[in-house]
């Protein structure tokens, strides 16, 4: 999933990085255009807020530009950028710890782009509760669930981008599934 997606007549990520490092800063806009939406959904699930996701993506792209010379595998810029986004999400959440659970619940309840305006009230209520329960999970468990069930990554792909073993991720997912269910008693019986 994290292979670079490049149109046949478009420059590869590696080509763009080489030209940016050669002084053509404006070419970084190609990478911004290519990836700014790529991890937005992940960031939104991690933070529970579209505005915060946008801030995180912006900051991650600027950090990627600053550190571009440290991208060793330029063909896998996308995976490298994901790790930056992931770290930014975790740093952001750590800074936000002082907020109250009520505040988190409010954010989870107002995830507008995740709501389907056509859905009936009951379905919307289930979705709101599930998103709220996700926000209450420990960060690493929430991340594992989002990558697995929203982003659709395989365990080996998750292991690579999270620098964790497949067996460790299996355990993390198992705990996350149980925690999520425990937070939703009586929901979707």
């Amino acid at each position: 999933m994290y292979d670079s997606v490049v149109m046949s007549d478009s420059p590869t990520d590696a080509d763009v990085i080489a030209s940016v490092l050669d002084g053509d800063t404006e070419r970084f806009g190609i990478l911004v255009e290519r990836y700014q939406d790529e991890f937005a959904r992940y960031a939104k699930y991690m933070t529970g807020s579209e505005d915060e996701a946008a801030d995180i993506i912006q900051e991650s792209l600027v950090r990627a530009y600053r550190s571009l010379q440290r991208c060793k595998d330029r063909a896998n810029f996308k995976g490298w950028l994901f790790r930056i986004v992931s770290n930014q999400c975790k740093s952001h959440l750590a800074r936000r710890r002082r907020r109250t659970l009520e505040r988190l619940s409010e954010e989870a309840a107002t995830v507008p782009a995740l709501e389907d305006p056509g859905a009936d009230a009951e379905a919307a209520d289930v979705r709101r509760k599930v998103h709220q329960a996700l926000q209450e999970l420990p960060t690493d468990q929430r991340e594992a669930l989002v990558l697995k069930y929203v982003e659709g990554l395989s365990l080996p792909e998750m292991a690579e981008i999270l620098s964790a073993s497949v067996s460790a991720l299996k355990m993390r997912l198992m705990r996350a599934r149980r925690e999520l269910l425990a937070k939703l008693p009586g929901v979707v019986t």
């Binding site: 404006e26 806009g29 255009e33 937005a40 939104k44 993506i57 912006q58 709501e115 379905a123 659709g152």
Partner: peptide
């Protein structure tokens, strides 16, 4: 039950406002 719960998660892509690209550049 878990599969039904996880099934309600929205998998549609999220498009950020164009101001993000402008701000980055």
């Amino acid at each position: 039950r878990f599969e039904r719960i996880i099934g309600v998660l929205d998998r549609r892509s999220l498009r950020l406002p164009s101001t993000v690209r402008a701000a980055v550049m």
